[in-house]
Design a protein around this nucleic acid. Sequence first.
RNA 1: GGUCUCGUGGCCGAGUGGCUAGGCAGAGGUCUGCAAAACCUCCCACAGCGGUUCGACUCCGCUCGAGACCUCCA
Length: 492
Amino acid sequence: MEHPLIVYNSLTRKKEQFVPLNPPFAGMYVCGPTVYGDAHLGHARPAITFDLVFRYLTHLGYRVRYVRNITDVGHLENDSDSGEDKIGKKARLEQLEPMEVVQYYTDRYHADMDQLNVLKPSIEPRASGHIIEQIEMIKSILQNGFAYEADGSVYFDVHKYNTLHHYGKLSGRVIEQLMEGYRNLDGQEQKRNPEDFALWKKAEASHIMRWPSPWGDGFPGWHIECSVMSSKYLGDVFDIHGGGMDLLFPHHECEIAQNRAASGKDAVRYWLHNNMITINGQKMGKSLGNFITLGEFFNGQHPALEQAYSGATIRFFVLQAHYRSTLDFGNEALKAAEKGLKRLQDAYGNLTKVIPKPTSTVDIATYRKRCYDALNDDFNSPLAIAALFDAARTINAACDGKENLTEADIASLTETFHIFFCDILAINSQKGGNQEKMLDIVKGLMNLILEYRQDSRQKKDWAASDKIRDGLQGLGIVVKDGKEGASYTVPD
RNA sequence: GGUCUCGUGGCCGAGUGGCUAGGCAGAGGUCUGCAAAACCUCCCACAGCGGUUCGACUCCGCUCGAGACCUCCA
């Protein structure tokens, strides 16, 4: 807390000090998944990025309300589709109720997030649960004169809005440029202008997901839910809004306009955007068909994957890059992350083996300071990780007796790892509480076995000691002989 | 076409006007019954061409290259 937290605000395109509106409270809204398919690596990026933000803000003492929505009302799939919504389409294909599809993929999304050690948000509202509020906000926008009804649909009047406010302030667009880009207005006849966007869409007879409204049966436009759910749970003005860079325009731009048109206020104080994950230099995305689902990463069943990767490895891989940079997928990079993470985990474990010395040869405090400095500078997780690696080297050196650490040093390092490795970056392999007992038993058994092996080794009975080691190896336990006796690890 | 971002060593990726990123891979060494770790050392990169500067990978311009958004997308 000594140093201020600096965040990069997409709205101002500058780094700014983060000062919440109502400290110690902090509000954060992040665009969540549309649950009509399995989450892929691209979905992991914002989830992990804003999980880090959530965890760090909490660590700094803020009382954070983190809202991440579930989009489950279905939106237009593409222009040629003329109105069939994603979830409705999937439902028909699989002969399921739309909400059954939603439930199925929501559950799977949650399971994936658990694997990635992503905390649950404070509130996870569903768009379908906020139809009334969405209708109310559309009414307000209509009343304020920034929208118009046309044949059962309601559209936002971008030109009207732009006479009073700047539509495009977030993405750096001006409306004249936008107008040039919209030459093909096929199937958009009801709109006064092609850059107008839907607040409410009339549902055709074939459209499964539909709700009654003052304008007839229909469904909400694909920007309004976020405006509604963020302001409902965080207030007309709140601190942080996050999401992927690809949502900058038009989604977030429209959110800004909707909130402003409804409440007269700019809702968001800090806009944070994570960059994309690329594969062969190209964005990984559903529409490009070049995505790998998280489930495929976990089980290794994808042609592009040479092996399976754990959730911790994926999380570490993501955090090893700054959230505003693109991150390129590759087996080599994933494997490097896996090994690097193991190195950190081993060092963390080695901390208990270091023999304290009366005097210290290392300045331990710098590691923690470097971690704080890194995260305070726009959540620079790769720098924080680098500091942990340096700390790991020191710990291992101390294990080898090449550096000296005092009792206080060890305690401090343990705490540093606990704070950053476990709590904030959260890249340690999680062990469930129920497994603790079994782990203790295993530890006891292992010590016993290693004692026997030690005996044979003292008798130079290599056959016996090798038999024990090889047998353990067969169980996936690797024995390592060191100066201070034998230790063991269980590689993934 | 418009708006914008980026181009770092074998790979992934930080960062800065002059001072070591870090990880993985590779080379050598220490330790060791063997093995595996660990530790030490090495591998000193910043697309190209100009310009600013005492000095640029870092600032400016241009060229080349890659990408994002403008349509659903994290």
